[in-house]
Computed example of a mutant assay.
Amino acid sequence: MALHGDSNEELRLFQTGEHPCGYFPERQARDLVLDPQDSRLGELYPMALGWGFRRSGDLVYRPHCQQCRACVPVRIPVARFMPDRSQRRCLARNADLDCRVLPAERSDEQFALYQRYLAARHANGGMDDHGPHEFDQFLVGRWSHGRFLEIRTHGAQGRLLAVAVTDVTPLGLSAVYTFFDPDEQARGLGTLAILQQIAWAQRAGLPHLYLGYWIDGHRKMDYKRRYRPLEYFDGRHWREDTAAR
């Protein structure tokens, strides 16, 4: 399969073979993948976000399952975002924390937090043996425009609580992956990370924060619908999700 990018050069798409679904263990999944050898991936990636694709390491993919359409690309138009009561409480609860944006370069402190997060939240999930190389391969990649949004306790020696891996493009930010201290569940660090990414996009004058895929009713993915307004991609156009909070 082929598409044409802005350069009018053919862009090749590959369909993967079936593999176990990461969200529904009883199902098989397939993906569409932009040609990983295409030297233009970095420049094409913002356009691909608009087509409902997502990045994992150096791969730009979109679910393409024959019998299932559960994965729905979603994004927040940040200029119109207004936090709800629960999100305002999260911001107030974490007003003592500091946030900073850094280059996407792994530190020992970040990697240690990543390992703790995986052990607590995704034990036996296929990522248990991730070492430094796998961290870089999965979260940094060779061509991405990534940054690390760190969330720390206040002070010069503030303790690292969370890292939101975020891609920066001219068309918006993309929330790639977030890991956080599993002992700080009461803070709602996952919610805080998204709220901070929204604020970052607003400051930068970027129109959207891409959240990846929403899955209706899925315990780990349905949370994305709590951010309003929310737009979803129907395969051709982005449309506003008009359902109530």
Results as ranks from 00 to 15, higher is better:
Asp6Gln: 15
Ser7Tyr: 11
Glu9Arg: 14
Pro20Met: 07
Cys21Asn: 06
Phe24Ser: 03
Phe24Trp: 08
Asp31His: 07
Leu34Ile: 10
Met47Trp: 15
Ala48Tyr: 02
Gly52Val: 09
Phe53Glu: 01
Arg54Gly: 06
Arg54Glu: 09
Ser56Ile: 06
Pro63Gln: 08
Pro63Arg: 02
Cys68Arg: 00
Val78Trp: 00
Ala79Trp: 07
Arg80Ile: 04
Met82Phe: 15
Pro83Lys: 07
Asp84Gln: 01
Arg89Val: 05
Cys90Tyr: 06
Arg93Phe: 07
Asn94Ile: 02
Arg100Leu: 12
Val101Tyr: 12
Val101Asp: 12
Gln115Tyr: 08
Ala120Arg: 12
Ala123Phe: 08
Ala123Lys: 12
Met127Lys: 06
Asp128Arg: 09
His130Phe: 15
Pro132Met: 09
Phe138Ala: 02
Leu139Pro: 05
Val140Ser: 09
Val140Met: 13
Gly141Arg: 00
Arg142Met: 14
Trp143Arg: 11
His145Tyr: 03
Gly146Glu: 07
Arg147Phe: 10
Phe148His: 13
Leu149Cys: 14
Glu150Phe: 04
Glu150Ser: 04
Gln157Tyr: 04
Gln157Thr: 12
Arg159Cys: 01
Arg159Ser: 04
Leu160Asp: 11
Val163Lys: 04
Val165Asp: 02
Val165Glu: 01
Val168Asn: 15
Leu173Asp: 00
Val176Tyr: 13
Tyr177Val: 02
Ala186Cys: 10
Gly188Met: 02
Ala193Trp: 01
Ala193Lys: 03
Ala193Asn: 01
Leu195Asp: 09
Gln196Met: 03
Arg203Tyr: 02
Ala204Lys: 10
Ala204Ile: 09
Gly205Val: 03
Tyr210Lys: 05
Trp214Leu: 14
Gly217Met: 08
Arg219Thr: 11
Lys224Ala: 04
Pro229Gly: 04
Tyr232Lys: 10
Arg239Ser: 09
Thr242Lys: 12
